[in-house]
């Protein structure tokens, strides 16, 4: 074995790039949980919907990709709004199990709706971006692009939450919703904005995933559970915790795949998750927002 293993380095870099997208996914889910206090079980299926939006606009209707892609952000953002208004808002004050069941129902609805319209086929937007070669490293340009966009999306959200008044109100509602309404904030509006934002994050993730993967109705299963696991590991609702947990998990998967197989690395990741839950049920990072 060489003194310096380029393949291992490649695996680590791919892990980081993959981590960026996972972190973006976790961010949207965490945002809703932290503010609205609801877990969107169907979050990955919103991402799937975004991928189909791009597919339909670009391939079926022939829109240019640069126009079709942003529509995923708008479209899934609107879906987030509708999900909150129609499904979450009416049962917000009922026990959490109702919300889990309702969004779980949405998951199956979206999967089957997609199957009905698009069939179970794997579809892709037929875009092949070059593979970059840096010395002896081969890095997929689409992954690099995804990573960059994910980081930009996260920075954007961070600035929105920390610099704007609506953003500050969102953070404040996450801390104490009763007080915020007594201070004149319409919490219902804050929930709607947050849900739309989380939807938009799912839409952005859809763009990044559709660049790398085929879309099919059950694609949510390939990253939904792991996104949820990352959120729990980072401390549900903790945006920063989820960010770091995403990179920990992505490295385990990436390096695990390098030494063994992808399947095995997912097993390792989930075993680690179970161990972490035994030792620190509140997540690696304390739960907060």
């Amino acid at each position: 074995m060489a003194l310096f293993d380029f393949f291992l380095l490649e695996a680590i870099i791919n892990g980081i790039l993959f981590g960026g997208v996972l972190a973006l996914l976790a961010l949207g889910l965490n945002l809703v949980f932290g503010v609205v206090d609801v877990i969107w079980i169907a979050y990955a299926e919103l991402v799937m919907s975004g991928m189909y939006i791009i597919y339909t606009l670009h391939i079926t209707w022939g829109w240019p990709l640069l126009l079709a892609a942003p529509m995923a952000i708008v479209g899934v953002g609107l879906m987030g709004l509708v999900v909150h208004r129609l499904i979450i808002a009416p049962i917000l004050d009922t026990p959490p199990i109702n919300q889990l069941l309702a969004t779980g129902g949405l998951l199956f609805f979206l999967q089957n709706f997609a199957t009905l319209i698009f069939g179970a086929d794997f579809r892709n937007i037929g875009l092949s971006l070059p593979i970059l070669q840096i010395f002896e490293l081969y890095i997929s340009f689409s992954r690099l692009l995804s990573f960059g966009a994910a980081v930009l999306g996260m920075i954007g959200l961070y600035l929105f939450l920390s610099r704007t008044y609506i953003g500050t109100a969102i953070r404040a509602v996450a801390q104490d919703r009763e007080i915020m309404s007594l201070m004149g904030v319409n919490t219902k509006k804050v929930y709607l904005i947050t849900s739309a934002l989380a939807g938009a994050m799912a839409g952005l993730a859809a763009i990044l995933l559709v660049l790398q993967q085929d879309v099919h109705p059950f694609i949510g299963f390939s990253f939904g559970p792991i996104t949820f696991m990352i959120c729990v590991m980072g401390g549900l609702g903790n945006l920063i915790g989820g960010f770091f947990a995403a990179f920990i998990i992505s490295q385990i998967i990436s390096i695990g795949s390098f030494y063994g197989s992808t399947e095995l690395s997912y097993v390792i990741a989930f075993v680690l998750f179970i161990i972490v839950m035994f030792i620190r049920p509140q997540g690696i990072f304390k739960r907060n927002t």
């Binding site: 500050t168 953070r171 404040a172 801390q175 309404s181 007594l182 319409n186 927002t289």
Partner: peptide, 24 residues
């Protein structure tokens, strides 16, 4: 009326146990 509307009409309250936003 909802608390935010009552607040806008001109009624404010404080809490016995202070509840500030500690992270702000």
């Amino acid at each position: 009326l909802t608390p935010d509307k009552i607040c806008h009409l001109g009624i404010a309250r404080t809490f016995q146990i202070p509840r500030p936003f500690k992270k702000l």
